[in-house]
Design a protein around this nucleic acid. Structure first.
Lengths: 203, 203, 203, 203
DNA sequence: GATGAATGAGAGTTCATTCAT
DNA sequence: GATGAATGAACTCTCATTCAT
């Protein structure tokens, strides 16, 4: 029998649940947020939620990771417009500089994301998922830019592109974790200094 | 009448419980680690633990924070030996470079510490405690070194000492959170690059 | 969407739990009766009980007080049939005289009720609840009858209606507490004497 | 070997513990008062207390009942001075009328006593102890006065002395339980009315 | 004798998940 | 498909009692 509701309809419902769940996880943390919280926040019944997801765990996984890939696509598209490697790196810093951590929702997303990452040391599934994604989407992105820049003489040739990529994301993670854990952290000023250091260092 | 057991005895018991608890928190996270886990890990009875601590929460708080102040004392002592500001900053980087994140206990402490910090956005008590401590022990430390270096012409005068301090700890936090969430993170190489960048930037 | 079970269904479930709880409280006292006792007595699961009540305390409160108001309604209805004040007072005595303290359930209710009242000195919530209810339902009832009787010359005018009301309930409480704490107390005989004394005293 | 400390010394220590315990039981109730409370209140160590009493239960039993017998002696002595039965009954009422229920300690003693009595339905040991004591010290006291008064023509001969005794103590218990559970109960006024009724009824 | 640290069974409560309706 | 009442294992914390010192 053909499904009574379209796949698209189901997808939208899932999205609704996921974004409600994300709000709950942000507000209370994964453990403290209850299915009842998600029920209340989403307006769905408990049974309905369990029709879409097998467990709270699965909701967590999907809620935290639903946006990453699509965001990446947008950024990559914009990077293509920039010919110089330095400009590309600069653009990536600017992308993070434009994050508004005074916005509750945005802060919350970051917080949940870092909590999720800290889980990785206890959950092989999370660990391998994050590791693969980090390599594919984040490390390779910078490494390619750097390698490209080195081949064009824009960037010092004596630097290891891979290490530089890890350093770059270390800076981003550093500024992010600080602002998430301290609302008064001078995120923009500090990240701007990091950008300046990093760009100076490249050439 | 004299107490049956000495204060020192009680202190040692507390330490034992705290380090057992830290292992549990590292293994499972604060929420997932149960008092029964701590009972099993420590060899104490449940009641005994509650003789020393009022709640699991209190154990968490103390387990995470027990070493910070004393460690600080040691570091500050060593800093006094170094006259040049640049050398002092360099020394601080080296301190973190010497952390061995392949050691289970050391990784565990970092992991639990970052989880604790992420709690701060939901727990005003943790937030204000961490904020005060970060300012007193960490931010002021760097700011004073920088201000000193600026007055002696070692460090560029156009840099804001406070922002620099926040940037410095952003780098440390960045490298730390990365290595905690990914055992393959090239911690030493990346932090060495950060150190280089930072020192270049200062002068 | 309509609820899966009716409000009436839920009401009946609550009643079932409350009467099971009352049996437990009577058997062991509030503190000694455990939620597991109530689980066993009622046949409900622990979770189910907590779906209907927030705490053991709430169950206690409602179990002790569920019948009072409705009983009062019945009694007041019957009082209206009696024109003479003396007859009304007499009827109230008779109501208590007809209590069968050899019946387990009835004894249990009284016992739990007096324990509850004794809690009031330690629990402001219980105290104010009981005080208000005693005034509204019990004291005023007698005072109005007495005042009425005085205006019609049935009852001595020199007596303070309010004090008389407190005296009346003192007699009832006295006979009740005695029979609850001693199954051999000659409840009917003693209360009959009290009735006689009281009625003699009125006129 | 002769005891190192005198029996009298031990008695005094026991008294100290008992009166501290009574304060605790009054403040929190038997179940809620902990041995640690009694330790704190009495200044004795836990081990010391367990040297004098076998269990918390035993402390409760003795604390509640320690004063009754000696008080009875005093009252009986005074009754001997009064020749008329009516005067004797009147004196007993006056004894209770002179209780100051605004005094915390006195109220507390009554409260603990009534709580203890309510336990009797669950504890055969308490039940039989109270029953015997009530008969020996309280019921017989009144019955003898009444019988005496009847033989001398002071008191109506058609009244059952035993029932009258139970009625008398019902009045006392009624006024007492009311004032214990409601600090605003007009104890003196109500008990005075009860006295009047009772005395009128006797003759 | 005196002490109070240690014990551990047992308390009230929570909550992810299920499944009869 | 949708609902939310029901489940019960698992949680944190308590406290009367013991016993090594």
């Amino acid at each position: 029998m053909a499904p009574v509701v379209s796949e698209d309809y189901k997808m939208r419902k899932k999205q609704e649940i996921l974004s409600s769940a994300l709000i709950c996880f942000a507000k209370k943390g994964y453990q403290q947020a209850t299915m009842d919280d998600i029920v209340e926040q989403s307006g769905f019944s408990k049974g309905a939620i369990y029709n879409y997801f097998r467990s709270k765990d699965e909701i967590y996984f999907e809620a935290v990771n639903e946006n990453t890939s699509s965001l990446q696509g947008v950024v990559k598209e914009q990077l293509k417009q920039l010919p110089a490697s330095i400009d590309r790196v600069s653009f990536l810093f600017d992308t993070y500089l434009s994050n508004n951590h005074e916005d509750q929702t945005e802060r919350a997303l970051f917080q949940v994301y870092y909590e999720f990452r800290l889980q990785s040391s206890r959950d092989e599934k999370i660990a391998s998922f994050l590791k693969k994604r980090r390599q594919d989407l984040f490390i390779n992105l910078i490494r390619d830019i750097v390698t490209d820049g080195q081949s064009r003489g824009e960037i010092r040739a004596d630097l290891d592109a891979d290490i530089l990529a890890h350093t770059f994301w270390g800076l981003i993670d550093g500024a992010s974790i600080c602002v998430v854990t301290d609302p008064d952290y001078p995120y923009k000023a500090a990240l701007t200094q990091m950008k300046q250091m990093f760009l100076d260092y490249l050439s």
